[in-house]
Design a protein around this nucleic acid. Structure first.
Lengths: 251, 251
DNA sequence: CGTTCTATTGACTCGATTCAAACTAAGTGG
DNA sequence: CCACTTAGTTTGAATCGAGTCAATAGAACG
């Protein structure tokens, strides 16, 4: 996994949903960034915080989560390199959820001031960043559908499908195999099911020959079946290119 | 329910999350709008559509929803006067969900062209509209928590709390009483529970003396208890003003 | 005034949770 | 490098929240 410069990650992500001009890429490469490393399950931001900088995932996985009833954790989104999980803090001062690592991760921080100075100068980048937050919202909508209307087996399959395409879009999931440092408990908190049941679901998927998952590496053995079990259609990801019926060609 | 001009609704909504200058209010009042009336359960936009205008709720309720497994409907958000449920269409060309009425409604349409011309001229309005879409996303996040971590009684209570505050914020829910043209089935599609179970939950809330609901009018009898049952905290709505522990003063 | 949609109630079933225990992998310190 | 500790995975049994099916009652509509 070549680390690359933080801004390379960001450019690649922004380009996965829309074209960027040479000028925009230059603007981004000029943004000041401070990179920091985190261990597993470390909080990066907490509910109620008032951030003065935005974070950008460079390596590893982050998640956003909220607590319900004081103790139950709901994971709201997963974030991969190139994502800016708190872009919203540019316009909403107080954070309404937590941001933490899942597994070790590297995160870059960009001061709000730098972004606020850059955006008015580039309509294309304003557009791109705004759209980034809108795609974020689109994923939440699908997450709502996932939790509200699908049973456990489909929920888990759906999330695995989403991760596959998102990782492929930034070049981190060749051949349908990728690192996934989540515990089964994490996945349960994302799907709204108990860790015990996650385990049963995963064994079901293994028995069907749909996936292989061992030592924090997952391999999708039967993409079509996983999509079908998970009732998955990729339109909501608003990725560029066609329908992504199969991403095999996206080597 | 005084109808008022469409732009009055919009200004009021935008001001419920942040201040607007005189100039901004003027810009908005100059936007071209075409108002149309709809009956109950009419589609305004469908998944896959490529809108060329944004819609603004003037009167009544809209909802956004997606289908899962081809037949199950998940309602993703409710929209009240002043909301612009497809603001995102400014930057995401293809709609990934449906927008329909719940009960009769009046909707104003604003051409994308007019908004695209206005926004670059006003940093405040770009900020305000962007923030509007971010608050939208914040409500989705809470919706995810609601579906993922709370049981049926709490889910329903939580949504009723949310509607109360949102309606109060635009002056449509004095004294904790307001019109709600949803069927129990609609509410079930929003909470991810069956219509039969919605009925049982409502009767439970009635028996506790928490609400009264009859003839499409709901009255919150015990706000504190409803909040407590629904595990409700209003921060995610990002409304202006303090903590909204009680909104009685917001006459 | 019948047609249709919505609300209500009861009985049965099922997916998922909880509790508990066993097992395995991973990490720490001596 | 092993012994100990801790975190994560796996399995089974009992229980429960919610769904489904079905039938009835009531409200709204033309």
């Amino acid at each position: 996994m070549a680390t690359g410069q933080p801004y390379t990650r960001l450019i690649r992500r922004l380009e996965s949903i829309g074209a960027l001009s040479e000028e925009s890429r230059h603007f981004i490469s000029q943004l000041p960034m401070t990179v920091r490393s985190y261990k597993t399950n470390q909080d990066i931001l907490r509910e109620g915080d008032v951030p003065t900088q935005c974070c950008l995932v460079v390596d590893g996985y982050l998640c956003r989560h909220k607590m319900a009833n004081g103790s139950k954790r709901q994971i709201i989104s997963f974030h991969i390199p190139g994502d800016m999980p708190d872009l919203q803090s540019l316009h909403l001062t107080r954070l309404d959820h937590n941001i933490s690592t899942l597994g070790p991760a590297a995160v870059a921080f960009i001061p709000h001031a730098a972004l606020r100075e850059m955006l008015p100068r580039s309509r294309e980048l304003t557009h791109a960043f705004w759209r980034e937050t809108l795609v974020d919202a689109a994923m939440f909508r699908e997450w709502v559908v996932n939790l509200g209307q699908r049973e456990a087996l489909a929920r888990v399959s759906h999330i695995l499908c989403e991760m596959t395409l998102r990782l492929q879009a930034i070049g981190l999931a060749r051949e349908f195999t990728f690192a996934l440092p989540w515990t089964q408990g994490d996945l349960g908190d994302a799907c709204g099911i108990s860790p015990v049941h996650v385990n049963r679901v995963i064994q079901n998927l293994r028995a069907r020959g749909a996936i292989e998952w061992h030592a924090k590496v997952i391999k999708i053995l039967n993409w079509e079946e996983l999509k079908s079990i998970g009732d998955f259609s990729p339109e909501y990801l608003h990725l560029r290119g066609e329908h992504h019926d199969t991403r095999i060609e996206a080597d």
